[in-house]
Measured scan of single mutants.
Amino acid sequence: TYYTVKSGDTLNKIAAQYGVSVANLRSWNGISGDLIFVGQKLIVKKG
């Protein structure tokens, strides 16, 4: 599943929405910090 980042989104918010961990979101998307951008597509695997 792909999720497109919207204004106001955070990794924590997206992780909670999908029932996954922030660590997994980072791993699946090659993100090291907490910086995400509006319009960015993130890979999300269902929890």
Rank of each mutant, 00 (worst) to 15 (best):
L25N: 00
L25A: 01
G47C: 09
I36N: 02
G39P: 01
K46N: 13
I36C: 04
G30V: 08
T10S: 10
I36Y: 04
K45N: 14
Y2D: 06
T10L: 04
A16L: 14
L25C: 02
K13F: 12
V22R: 04
G19L: 09
L11Y: 03
F37P: 05
A15W: 01
I31F: 08
G47T: 12
V22F: 04
K41C: 08
V38G: 05
L35P: 07
T4R: 07
G30H: 13
F37G: 06
I14Q: 00
L35G: 09
S27T: 14
K45D: 15
G33Q: 09
I43T: 08
D9I: 02
I43D: 04
Q17I: 15
S32I: 13
G30T: 09
A16Y: 10
L42P: 00
G39R: 03
Q40W: 05
G8C: 06
G8M: 06
I14G: 00
V20E: 08
K6Q: 14
S27L: 15
L25E: 00
S7F: 11
K6V: 12
I43Q: 09
F37V: 10
G19D: 12
A23G: 11
R26W: 04
K46F: 14
G33T: 09
Q17W: 13
Y3L: 04
G8V: 03
I43H: 07
Q17Y: 13
Q17G: 07
Y18C: 04
S7N: 12
R26Y: 05
I36D: 02
W28Y: 05
T4W: 11
T10D: 09
K46V: 15
N12E: 13
Q17A: 13
G39M: 04
G8D: 08
T10A: 05
I36L: 11
A23I: 11
L35N: 11
A15F: 01
K41R: 12
I31D: 03
V5G: 02
G19W: 06
V22G: 04
S32Y: 12
G39Y: 03
A15R: 02
G39W: 03
R26L: 10
G47R: 09
D9G: 01
V20L: 08
I31R: 02
Q17V: 12
G47N: 14
T4D: 06
Y3P: 01
T4Q: 09
K13Q: 14
I31W: 04
N24L: 13
K13D: 12
K41M: 15
N24I: 11
T1R: 08
Q40A: 06
V38C: 06
I14P: 00
G19Y: 08
Y3W: 04
S21H: 07
R26F: 04
V20D: 03
L42N: 00
I43P: 00
W28H: 03
D9T: 02
L35D: 14
N24A: 11
G47H: 14
T4H: 10
I43L: 15
Q17F: 14
S21P: 09
K45F: 15
S32L: 13
N12K: 13
G47P: 13
I43R: 08
V44S: 02
I31L: 15
V22D: 05
G8N: 07
S21N: 08
S7C: 06
T4Y: 12
L25S: 00
G19F: 08
G30A: 13
S32V: 14
V5S: 03
L25T: 01
